[in-house]
Simulated scan of single mutants.
Amino acid sequence: MRLFLTSLALGLTLGFGSALAQPVALTTRLVTDALDQPLFAVAPPADPRLFVVEQTGRIRIIVDGKLAEAPFLDLSASVSSGGEQGLLGLAFHPDYANNGRFFVNYTDKDGATHIVGYKVSADPAVADPASAGELLRIDQPFANHNGGWLGFGPDGLLYIGMGDGGSGGDPGNRAQNPDELLGKILRLDVDGATPYAIPEANPFAEGGGRPEIFALGVRNPWRPSFDGDDFYIADVGQSAYEEITVITAESAGANLGWNIMEGPACYGAQSCEQTGLVPPSYSYSHDTGGCSITGGYVYRGKAIPEIAGQYFFADFCDSRVNSFAYADGEAGDVFDWTAQLGGIGGITSFGVDSAGELYLTTIEGKLFEVVRAE
Rank of each mutant, 00 (worst) to 15 (best):
G89D: 04
V116D: 09
A21W: 04
F142T: 08
A68M: 08
Q140G: 12
L50Q: 11
A70H: 05
R137N: 15
V116A: 11
G65T: 07
A77Q: 07
G57W: 02
E84C: 06
F51A: 12
D36C: 01
V31T: 02
P38K: 05
S121P: 12
V126F: 05
V42L: 14
N146T: 01
A77S: 09
H93T: 02
P45Q: 15
F40N: 09
F40Y: 11
Q22L: 09
E69G: 11
P124M: 09
K109Y: 14
A25R: 00
R58G: 02
F72N: 00
F92I: 13
R101V: 04
N146R: 07
R137S: 15
L87Y: 03
R29Q: 13
H145D: 12
I115H: 11
G117Y: 00
P48I: 15
R49A: 15
L67G: 08
I138N: 14
D33R: 01
T113Y: 10
L50E: 14
H114Q: 10
P45H: 15
G147P: 10
G83E: 11
Y118H: 07
P141Y: 12
T107E: 05
F142R: 13
G83A: 10
V24F: 01
V63I: 05
E84M: 08
L26W: 09
H145S: 12
Q37T: 07
I61Y: 00
V31D: 00
A127F: 03
G86L: 06
P38S: 04
A130W: 01
E84H: 06
I62P: 00
R29S: 13
V53S: 09
L135M: 15
F72W: 04
L87F: 06
G148E: 08
V104Q: 07
P71E: 03
V120G: 01
A91C: 03
L87E: 00
R101Y: 03
R137M: 15
F92K: 10
D95T: 08
D108V: 06
G83P: 14
N144C: 13
A43I: 13
Q85S: 14
V104C: 08
L39M: 10
Y96H: 10
P23L: 09
V42K: 13
A34D: 04
A132T: 09
L30P: 01
Q22D: 11
A21S: 11
D139N: 15
A70I: 08
L39W: 06
A43M: 13
E69I: 11
G65Q: 03
D123M: 05
Q37P: 00
K109R: 15
K66R: 07
L136C: 15
V31K: 00
I115Y: 09
A41L: 11
S76A: 03
S131M: 08
P23C: 10
E69T: 13
L67R: 09
P124D: 04
V116W: 08
S78I: 02
D64W: 03
V52Q: 07
L50W: 12
Q140T: 13
P124S: 08
E54Q: 11
I59A: 03
V52E: 10
Q140N: 13
T32S: 00
D33Q: 02
G65V: 06
N99L: 04
G83W: 12
W149V: 04
E84Y: 06
A21Y: 03
Y96L: 05
A97Q: 10
T32D: 00
N99Y: 02
G147W: 13
A127P: 02
